Amino acid sequence: MTGVSVALLAVPVLVALLGPLLADAVARPPGLPYSGGGLLGTDGLGRDVFGTLLLGGRTTLGVALLAVVFAYLAGGLIGLVAASTRRRVLDEALIRPLDILLPLPSLLVISVVAVGWRGDPLAIALVVGAVNVPTVARLVRAAALDAASGPAVEAMRMQGESWARIQFGLVARSALPPVLADIGTRITLAVFIVASANFLGLGLNPTSPDWAVTVSRNREGLLLQPWSVLAPAAMIVAFTLGLNLLADRLLGRRREVVAA
């Protein structure tokens, strides 16, 4: 099972990383829309499907990964501070305002931001990351709460250890297992949100080679040239499926080691 998950994950990741370097060498000149020329034919704009496939993963996966990194940098720090503070007022002040963001639909937030920053990958990543901050903050707080109030932390404080060393050296490490379990799901969710936004026209430019944009733009020509839709869709599915299978496998092994 591990080999299958690695293979599923490796294909879209390698395409996203190496594709832009190979695109110019393998892409064919534009031709007729939805024709059979080239390895995978052409899309609705007459562009080589294989060439756009090599370019599309850079935004689809890159924006999602950047969003998750931002969510954990911001939400993780908030969660650690809320878990370690001895003042309930500060805990409430950090966590309660985030509850306002929890019920907001992700695509609604993206659609509002898209009015001013449509087509900007960084803006999309920051918005998707911000939408995930409340959930990440609550997860980290709950996972770190026991360790933050435990005797080991008190002993380190009495020894004069710095706040950063206590939090990142002890408390954060105690919260690592549930965080690792969440990261796989969080990245998958970010890929889904980014892809949905691009599919609905709320994200990148409609002519972008992004996999989700490509699926959206060519869905009407599915029967004429199925690879213009199936190839990028398969990359998204392979990445999300492979990542979740691999995360489940690694977490299963970790539980077996801990139990032993």
Rank of each mutant, 00 (worst) to 15 (best):
M1D: 13
V6G: 10
L8P: 05
L9K: 11
L9P: 08
A10L: 14
V11N: 01
V15M: 07
V15P: 06
L17M: 09
L18A: 07
G19D: 03
G31E: 14
G36Q: 11
G38Y: 05
L39A: 14
G41W: 13
G41S: 13
T42K: 14
D43H: 03
L45T: 00
D48Y: 04
D48L: 05
V49P: 07
V49S: 05
V49L: 04
G51E: 03
L53A: 03
L55S: 13
L55Q: 14
R58T: 13
L61V: 11
G62N: 11
A64T: 05
L65W: 09
A67P: 09
A67I: 03
V68M: 03
F70K: 00
Y72W: 12
L73A: 13
L77A: 11
L77K: 02
G79C: 01
L80G: 08
V81I: 08
V81G: 03
V81W: 06
R86E: 10
R88E: 15
V89N: 05
E92M: 09
E92G: 07
I95G: 11
I95W: 11
R96Y: 13
L98Q: 02
D99G: 14
L101Q: 05
L101P: 01
L102P: 00
P105Y: 01
L107D: 09
L108E: 00
V109L: 15
A114E: 04
A114L: 10
R118W: 02
P121N: 11
I124E: 15
I124T: 11
A125C: 09
L126V: 05
V127Q: 01
V127K: 02
G129F: 00
A130I: 10
A130Y: 05
V131S: 13
V131Y: 10
V133D: 01
V136A: 01
R138I: 04
R141D: 07
A142P: 12
A143T: 00
A144F: 03
D146Q: 04
A148N: 00
S149E: 13
P151S: 12
E154W: 06
E154Y: 04
A155W: 11
M156E: 14
M158D: 08
Q159I: 03
G160H: 09
S162Y: 04
A164P: 04
I166A: 06
F168Y: 13
F168H: 07
G169R: 09
L170Y: 10
A172C: 10
R173K: 14
R173C: 08
S174E: 11
A175L: 07
V179W: 04
D182P: 01
I183F: 10
G184L: 08
G184K: 10
I187C: 07
T188N: 09
T188S: 14
V191M: 10
F192A: 15
V194D: 06
A195W: 09
A197M: 07
L204T: 06
P206F: 07
P206V: 05
T207I: 01
S208M: 03
P209F: 06
D210P: 02
D210T: 00
W211M: 04
W211P: 04
T214L: 07
T214P: 00
S216G: 09
L223S: 14
Q225A: 13
S228P: 05
L230F: 10
A231C: 12
P232L: 12
P232R: 08
M235C: 15
F239V: 00
F239I: 01
T240E: 11
L241M: 12
N244Q: 12
L245D: 06
L245P: 03
L246V: 00
R249F: 08
L251R: 13
R254K: 08
R255W: 12
E256L: 15
E256T: 11
A260F: 15
